[in-house]
């Protein structure tokens, strides 16, 4: 069973009083729980949040399932999101996605041995710098195949040295 940490409980309490209605705190709180739960939201997370916020669990589940930034399963340490919408597509976004998927072998559970997950995503608002990818919170733009691979390799290496 997932339990909300004391620190996160404080965060939730603050968010609940921040907006005009406590429901508005659901999205920020799901982001916070996702951080606490290795990057994804489990049913346990929702149940705990529902109890702590006193909001029906189905309301939280509706929000959780509606927004793409909440992950339904683990996305590893590095969630690589390659934009494949129109401008990126015209500049090789899909190709970049395929190259990265081949390079960093993703296992059956959706995560590679180096703890990477790779997703094809819709427009990230970086169309003038296509192709691009987002790794966790950061944008990497004007990519080439080699540049993208290098960025990811560097990230993996930096994790190991830390």
């Amino acid at each position: 069973m997932f339990t909300i940490s004391e620190k996160t409980k404080k965060f939730i309490t603050k968010e609940v009083s921040r907006y005009e209605t406590k429901r508005s705190a659901i999205i920020p709180c799901l982001f916070e729980l996702q951080k606490d739960n290795q990057g994804w939201i489990s049913n346990d997370c929702i149940e705990s949040l529902s109890q702590f916020m006193d909001i029906p669990s189905k309301d939280i589940n509706e929000v959780f399932h509606f927004y793409t930034m909440f992950n339904k399963k683990s996305v590893g340490d590095f969630h690589i999101q390659v934009c494949c919408n129109i401008s990126c597509h015209m500049n090789g976004g899909l190709d970049l996605f395929k190259v990265l998927s081949d390079e960093f072998k993703i296992e059956k559970n959706g995560v590679s041995k180096d703890s990477l997950a790779i997703s094809k995503v819709e427009c990230l608002g970086s169309c003038g710098t296509a192709p691009m990818m987002q790794v966790n919170e950061k944008y990497y733009e004007n990519l080439t195949k080699d540049k993208a691979i290098q960025v990811i390799k560097d990230l993996i290496a930096s994790k190991k040295t830390n």
Partner: peptide, 10 residues
């Protein structure tokens, strides 16, 4: 003034 972050929905 406050800021509110979306969560991925066009």
């Amino acid at each position: 003034m406050d800021i509110y972050s979306g969560a991925g929905a066009y």
